[in-house]
Nucleic acid binder design. Structure first.
Lengths: 184, 184
DNA sequence: GGACGAACTGTACACCGTCCAGTACGCTGG
DNA sequence: CCAGCGTACTGGACGGTGTACAGTTCGTCC
């Protein structure tokens, strides 16, 4: 429904974010453009810039949003399995929504509030493994890098290995990292 | 120097690749476009398509080319340090040329002949560590994913950690992986 | 009620990858 | 030696991108 200039469409930041999520879900990462999001809202492309600084800011918000659907590890579970399970859940999440991984890679990881919250939950578990606060950062980084990398392999266009195989591999190599972390 | 249509500029595949390398070195990944490469050669943009299928094919070739500057691990070195050194050299290579990492991430890793050669050299070393041929693939993958990920962190725009710190972290976590690999 | 700031519009700029049709060259067969 | 052909190149264009600029109109506050 076209509007005469100046009229308010009632956009909000959240509405823009929701529209971006819809477009991403329907048309994938390649189909996510300022114009497509604006079209989804029935609005001129540049209208989005009243609510969002950049395209990159928009996808950053979108990516962090996705992380919110991840159940944080319960603090009283066995630390090792708890950590492994979060990372495997992350892997599953990324693999289930193709196109998500390239977006994360392009932004070289998410730094939003949800990402930070997850990191802190992991740090708590690591503390119970005997890993100090300073070393915890290193371990969290290692686990995340590893998991994201395997998700990237699993969703690559010319993937020679099945996601299931890679998931099994990830499980093994995560354990290597966790063993190394707790033994140092 | 403009040419009348039909005249030959004497382009070759290698010349295009070299021009791409130059443009990349000078203007980085964002500045690498078909048009900029063509301009570097004094040629119309679409002239490149006589020698290169795609832009993606061009950057794939470019990325694999870069890997050629990496010294393969000597087969008679200590396997563990040999493997660690290749990965650290890879890290250094990626960090030294900013913009390289995003390109690799975008293509989700290199699959060219040089990449394969490196992988095979690593497999040889792993065999001397007692890692069978089938498991070697898994370990090589883990090491590469890990290294590339750390290089990504080191070259991220908002990098909070210095490359040197990350390199040290990488050294530690690579050892965790190698210990896990040889102990299984 | 008049001013103001913000939300929106149309338009436009500077790019991008790539396709299409044409042209002129180099090579090869006769 | 010359005709013909394949191909390396050209100009031009298409459809797309992110985003800046200026204008219009609305809701709100003094």
């Amino acid at each position: 429904m076209p509007r005469t200039p100046g009229q308010r469409a009632g956009l909000t930041y959240d509405a823009v974010l929701a529209a971006a999520r819809d477009v991403f879900a329907e048309r994938g990462r390649a189909g996510l453009s300022m114009r497509s999001v604006a079209a989804q809202l029935g609005v001129a492309p540049n209208a989005l810039y009243s609510h969002v600084a950049d395209k990159t800011a928009l996808v950053d918000a979108l990516l962090d949003d996705v992380l919110g659907t991840l159940a944080p590890p319960s603090a009283d579970a066995d630390p090792t399995t708890g950590l492994r399970d979060v990372m495997l859940a992350t892997f599953d999440l990324l693999v289930a929504r193709p196109g998500l991984v390239p977006a994360y890679l392009e932004r070289q990881g998410a730094r939003g509030p949800r990402a930070r919250a997850l990191g802190e939950a992991m740090t708590v578990l690591l503390a119970r493994l005997g890993v100090g606060e300073d070393a915890a950062g290193r371990v969290v980084r290692a686990l995340i890098v590893h998991t994201l990398g395997y998700a990237a392999l699993a969703t690559a266009d010319d993937a020679t290995l099945s996601p299931a195989q890679l998931r099994a591999d990830l499980e093994v190599t995560l354990d290597w990292l966790l063993v190394g972390a707790s033994g140092s």
